[in-house]
Amino acid sequence: MAQEVRGVVARSAKAPVTVETIVIPDPGPGEVVVKVQACGVCHTDLHYREGGINDEFPFLLGHEAAGLVETVGEGVTEVAPGDFVILNWRAVCGQCRACRRGRPQYCFDTHNAKQKMTLTDGTELSPALGIGAFAEKTLVAAGQCTKVDPTVSPSVAGLLGCGVMAGIGAAINTGEVGRGDSVAVIGCGGVGDAAIAGARLAGAAKIIAVDIDDRKLATAREMGATHAVNSRENDAVEAIRELTDGNGADVVIDAVGRPETYKQAFYARDLAGTVVLVGVPTPDMTAPELPLIDYFGRGGALKSSWYGDCLPSRDFPMLVDLHQQGRLPLEKFVTEEIGIEGVEAAFEKMYRGEVLRSVVVL
């Protein structure tokens, strides 16, 4: 029988969100209903509210979540009622050309629940990233549920569902940071700090945090940065070169995603270094104009990192285990815990740079 629960809805672009009653259908074949326990307030949710993703309003926001499987539909074998899971937006198909070549982290046909959640008047909702977890319960595809150690706090576990995974994966999976490497991270918000934590996990010898906000640089040091550069006051490229014996960093991660920061990353890397773009540009942005000879004259690699090139079934349990061992301080990402009514205020705090992560606890 369909259930009615509370959820956070964005009805139109740039309008404040509202808490409304939504209808959750019984799970169909391959689907799961999850009782959400916690969900991080991610910048992507703000993009949805602002109309920066698409115009398929109304949206059911929230995607960085963890909770308990309540009911499963026909044919579901991956999870069972009572399992503690992190939700992900990469439910791999197993059939596309990437999956068939053994690269499921690049799956080209990830899937979501086929049924729609609705408002009480029958209006269909578009769930953010196919999840929609600013709600007491949500309907997802079974492949979007990744079982992890149930003793971990839902508030920290859910963060692996998006931003923290994107940053850690940018360093470890995409950038392939190795022991003794030098790493620079431009932009020290949630994703940038996660990239710093990932570089530290990988054994980087020097981790340089770059931002225009001294508060964020102080937090970056707590996450593992060995050096901090305020790029409002200093030339970021020159500062990174100076800290790396004039060579540039082995890996430079752009966690902002703007033409000017990408140009900084390009010139701040060593001659055979790697640039990783994990910050999300807006559709109107274009690549910075760089002399083609500068591309030709350098080795290394220029990479983009989508969801940290993660494979949830592989990476989520591993990162939870590292957290439980005290080697990955996920709790430091949680600035505050709020109720479902506090999402709009959390967006405002995000605008002002006052939080690393607000987490909705249900």
Rank of each mutant, 00 (worst) to 15 (best):
V79T: 13
V79S: 10
A80F: 03
A80T: 10
G82Q: 06
G82E: 13
G82I: 15
D83N: 15
D83K: 13
V85N: 07
V85T: 10
V85A: 10
V85K: 12
I86M: 12
L87P: 11
N88C: 11
R90G: 07
R90L: 15
V92Q: 11
C93Q: 09
C93I: 10
G94S: 03
G94P: 04
Q95H: 09
Q95K: 11
C96T: 04
C96A: 06
C96F: 01
C96P: 04
R97L: 05
R97E: 04
A98N: 14
R101K: 14
R101W: 02
G102H: 04
G102N: 02
G102T: 02
G102F: 04
R103G: 02
P104M: 03
P104V: 00
P104K: 00
Y106K: 02
C107S: 06
F108L: 13
T110W: 05
A113V: 15
A113T: 10
K114C: 06
K114A: 13
Q115M: 06
Q115L: 06
Q115G: 05
M117H: 09
L119W: 00
D121F: 09
D121G: 15
E124I: 09
E124M: 14
P127L: 08
A128G: 10
A128Y: 03
L129H: 11
L129C: 15
L129I: 14
G130R: 01
I131N: 13
I131P: 12
G132C: 13
G132T: 08
F134E: 08
A135F: 08
A135I: 07
E136H: 07
E136G: 12
E136F: 04
E136Y: 07
T138F: 09
V140I: 15
V140S: 13
A141T: 12
A142I: 07
G143C: 05
G143W: 02
G143T: 08
G143H: 05
Q144N: 15
Q144L: 12
Q144I: 14
C145E: 04
T146N: 02
K147I: 14
V148D: 09
V148P: 00
V148H: 05
V148W: 08
D149C: 05
P150L: 11
T151K: 11
T151L: 04
T151E: 12
T151W: 01
V152D: 03
V152N: 02
V152R: 01
S153L: 14
S153W: 08
S155M: 03
S155C: 12
S155E: 15
V156F: 07
V156T: 15
V156K: 14
A157Q: 04
A157P: 00
G158T: 01
L159R: 10
L160A: 02
G161W: 09
G161I: 01
G161S: 06
C162E: 01
C162L: 00
G163Q: 05
G163F: 01
V164H: 03
V164G: 03
V164A: 03
V164M: 00
M165F: 03
A166D: 10
G167Y: 06
G167N: 06
G167L: 04
I168T: 13
I168W: 09
G169D: 04
G169Y: 10
G169H: 13
A170S: 15
A170P: 05
A170E: 03
A170H: 06
A171D: 04
A171P: 03
